[in-house]
Structure formats: structure tokens, C-alpha cells
Design a protein around this nucleic acid. Structure first.
Lengths: 199, 199
DNA sequence: AAAAAAGTCGAACGAACGTTCGATAAACTT
DNA sequence: AAGTTTATCGAACGTTCGTTCGACTTTTTT
């Protein structure tokens, strides 16, 4: 229900109807609507994080770590799209201590990604990019997936993870046809301000 | 209010209180809560789209077009974070004809981006990447920004657009230190399944 | 100055909200 | 067989929801 209608839009009565349990019956198991959202988010997040840590153990190459992270994230995302949408779309619906706890998990998750990126830089595997922007852009690519992925026409987790990792590492440009840098810094403001100019 | 509490979470009474207009007074101007959301989304989206089309006019180099698109998108995003969050976060809250119309605008916007990417490929400026995945990943990077951007510490629109464009085109990897492809296809499944192996 | 239009609001509408209570039934423990 | 815990529910609680109505004031048009 949270997936379909959002946290606020879904009522306990919706959940009651869909689960076949009476209103009061629901409260025998879960003390509040907030707690229910918390349980979903905390369980989902901790599962993803736990799997990641397990798969990362013993791996030392940061680029390989990055591949594992992306694969782990997208695999879970596509296998559990309902929970994952509730996790990423309803994160502000949680309040107080519940929110704080999920936020802490999120920070730990981010710290792992940031750490991997930092290792990449230390080994000379990453260009001089704002690391915060880079890592959060990667999360953007991954977390946005729930808004567009259609199993019938889009790649499955394996291929998608590969594509995203590849894009993150090397981009989409053919190095021979697109000169890197140079043009980018020069005359940017002018280019935007005067769109009528021919290329 | 939609920005702060989400569409369902924000009540007309919240809006009344915040605007200093009575409940009934609100309905003199807007016929329903749905319509209010529609007006916000439609206006915002059409403004962004209109600006983009204006800036794109007369430009023929697809790579430059891409830069303009990213810059236009992020500039508006950071200058109007409230409307843009409501646009990207509350898109499913709209129903019926309202929803359909905004969806159509979204499709037009996507078509422009997809067209640019297609031109890049035609000119040999893009590698062999799933174009749908590439374009939607770019949107992911851009649209996710509202979840993390903090004006105090993060780059402004200009620099951010530059960084995102650069990442999209060339990725974050230093070409000399990270071999492209090769490893990616070989032994992926094994690598994920047996995380204990050293690199 | 009279008439019409536009603007504003308090009070109320029925419906839906999250949550609780007390009763009842089913399942275990002694 | 009696007693206790666990499970389940109908009915209701007080509150808030989106929306409407009729009355009143202000502004504009004639």
C-alpha cells in the first residue's frame, strides 16, 4: 500500500483490506502506522547493507568493490522493487527516533561508497572530481531506477549494474570523437546565454 | 506545503494557514487540491521545457546540446528547489487528465534528451551503450540532486552542471589506471557469488 | 449613486483518518 | 478440565480531511 499510494496516501484501512486482517487485528501486531513504515525501511536497508558488507569482505581492489556495490544495490532493487521504492521514496515520512535510525543506516551506506571512491583516488584510479558529487550522482543513477525500470523492456540486474558501473567509470563518450575538458571550461557562460550561435 | 509534507501529507488547512487565506478563500482561486498540484507541476515543467527549447535553438553539435540540457535542468533545479521537488517527488499524486498532461510533457522532455543522445551516436560521439539506460541514468543523476544538495557546501548550478556533464560523458575513472571492459564480462557471477576471494 | 462583479470568510458538511476498547474465539499450559 | 495466553474482530472514539454554502465587504463598472 505504501508502494502504491505513498505513506500518507495509504490508510490503515487500505492495509486492512489488502491483508485481510481487521483494523484492530493489525494493531495487535504493529503498534502504529509509523512503526510499520519503520519496520519496512529498517529491514530493507539493513538487508541491503548486510549483503554488501558480506560481499565486500576480503576484496581489496576499489574498482572491484565499486562493481560489487552497484551490482548489490541494483540486484536488490530489481528483485524487491516494492520495498526499495518505499525506502527511497518515503524516507521523509518517518519521524523522530525511527527516522534518526534509518538515517544512520543511510549514512553508513554512503560512507562505504565514499570510502571506496576515496580508495580509487588514492590508487590513481579516479580523476579529480568532487567526490561527494560523484558518489551522490552514482546513487542518483541507481536510486532513480525505480521510476523508470520496466522488466519487460529493460536490462536485468546483471546487465544494468554493468551498464551503470561502466557509465560511472568511463562515461558514454567515445574518446576519439569528443575532446575532454578544454571546451568545457571555455566560454560556458556565453554559450548558455546566447543560444542562437551556431556550433 | 507540498514540498515540506508531500501532497497527501499537506492539508488545505496547512496551505490556508501558511498563505494567510481562509479555507473558503482558497477555493475561490483554485477549484481543488489536485488542481493546485497540477498548476504547480504543469507551470514548472513547461517553464523548464520552454527554456530548454529556447536555448537549444540554433545549436547543432549534440555534445553542446547535452551540456545545455544539463545546465538548464540543474540551474532551474537549484534556483527553484521547492517547485522542482514537488515536480519530481509528487508525480504519482496526480490523477486522471491532469496526470496525463504532465506525463505528456515529461515524455516530450525525455524525447529531446533521447534525440540528443541519438545524434551523438550518429556522429560517433557516443559509445555503444543502451541509450534508454544512458539517458535515464543521466536524469537520475540530475533529479536525485534535490535529495542531497546543500547550497552551503555543494557546487552551484554552473559547476554542478559541468561536473555532471563531465561524468556522464567521460566517467570518473582515470583511463590509465582502470582497464575498460575486459574484466567486466569475465567471471562476474563468480566474483559476486564468492566474495571471499582476494583481488 | 446605484448596480454589478470580485474577493473574503466563518461555519458547517459528510467522509475518512489513526487508534482504542471490550468481547469473543482459538491455541496452548497445567 | 480448568486456566491462561494468544489471536481476532466489530464498534466506536475524537480528530482531521477536502469541499461547499451563504453572508458580508470591497472594488469596479455604469
Amino acid at each position: 500500500m505504501f508502494y502504491e499510494k505513498g505513506y500518507e496516501g495509504a490508510s490503515i484501512r487500505d492495509i486492512s483490506r489488502a491483508s485481510g486482517v481487521s483494523l484492530a487485528g493489525l494493531y495487535y501486531y504493529v503498534e502504529s502506522k509509523q512503526k510499520l513504515l519503520y519496520l519496512i525501511q529498517a529491514y530493507t536497508f539493513k538487508t541491503v547493507l548486510g549483503r554488501l558488507e558480506g560481499r565486500l569482505a576480503g576484496v581489496s581492489d576499489p574498482v572491484e568493490k565499486l562493481r560489487i556495490l552497484v551490482h548489490n544495490h541494483l540486484e536488490y532493487f530489481l528483485r524487491h522493487p516494492v520495498e526499495m521504492k518505499v525506502l527511497s521514496h518515503e524516507d521523509e515520512a518517518l519521524e523522530g527516533a525511527y527516522r534518526k535510525e534509518v538515517l544512520q543506516t543511510k549514512r553508513r551506506y554512503y560512507a562505504i561508497a565514499a570510502g571506496i571512491f576515496e580508495e580509487m583516488r588514492a590508487r590513481g584510479a579516479a580523476r579529480r572530481v568532487n567526490p561527494r558529487v560523484a558518489v551522490l550522482s552514482l546513487f542518483g543513477m541507481m536510486n532513480w531506477v525505480y521510476t523508470w525500470h520496466r522488466p519487460k523492456i529493460d536490462p536485468r540486474a546483471d546487465a544494468l549494474a554493468e551498464a551503470v558501473t561502466e557509465m560511472f567509470l568511463h562515461g558514454v563518450a567515445d574518446g576519439r570523437a569528443v575532446s575532454r575538458g578544454k571546451q568545457i571550461l571555455a566560454g560556458r557562460a556565453r554559450r548558455i546565454a546566447a543560444p542562437g550561435r551556431a556550433a
